[in-house]
Amino acid sequence: MTALVLLDAEDGTIPQTSRSAIAAATSLGDIDVLVTGGADTIAAAAASAAKIPGIRKVRTASGEAFAHGLAEPLAALLVALAPDYDHIVAAATAIGKSALPRAAALLDVQVIPDVMDIKDSETFVRPIFAGNVLVTLHSSDAKKLLTIRTASFDPVAAEGGTAPIEAVTPPDDQQKSRFVSAEHSSTERPQLEAARVIVSGGRGLQSAEGFKILEPLADRLGAAIGASRVAVDSGFVPNDYQVGQTGKIVAPDLYIACGISGAIQHLAGMKDSKVIVAINKDEEAPIFQVADYGLVGDLFQIVPALTAALG
């Protein structure tokens, strides 16, 4: 059997989330990867992909239509390549979640989103109801299209392989939506999905100004910063900080929740963290039901004290 893994390589690098998707696919047979991007990034992206161990070949498609990860040309490309594969796999990132279901519909296949475990080539485990239920599904489709919950799979190594690179000719201009502009929230910190430590804040931080109290702690721990929906909705931090059922799904070694109550939608995104610390002034807050260590008190005193105590 052979699987094709679509990588998120638009900026010329291969993110950890894509390497987790490859890890998930390793039980499915031979693996080809598909790298797409603009003419300026494709060579670097392909070279990085070729270094990933265990890849049979790297297939590339480039051009303006692929520069921004638009779903329509990606789906058309996946459909064109589909006859060669039994499984088509992508990380459950914004790009994977947009393109794979579209391609699946064109192939008359029911996409299987957010796969956490692969039992065999036709049997998959995925979360439903905000992760409160895990369902084991059997797919009767001839071809399987999956997106991968990356927090559930340790990424494969970035270096060590020498896979051949082969350019493919994409189907004729399939561009439908057009890219206008992007606003990337700039940060020097690790990506949420890749971070070993996450310091996360909620409504308890009170304001964008108040939220900054988390920064020295995150600096000290080399941590990424996350947030609850309320913190994002209130404009304390940008949207891509949101952790939860409808935000990012993370599983770091250490998750420090500050001023977050622990709603099920938030827990859905972080309850697989190895160690959870909760800092909350309400000792009844549900977050304490999942926290390994809790401190009850005012975060505006505790957070700076913790930063200082770490030296």
Binding site: H68, L70, T93, A94, I95, K176, S177, R178, F179, V180, S181, A182, E183, H184, S185, P238, N239, D240, K248
Partner: peptide, 12 residues
């Protein structure tokens, strides 16, 4: 649209 690294605007 809300995407992983921030947001982007598309025309349709």
């Amino acid at each position: 649209r809300e995407i992983d690294g921030g947001s982007e605007t598309l025309s349709l």
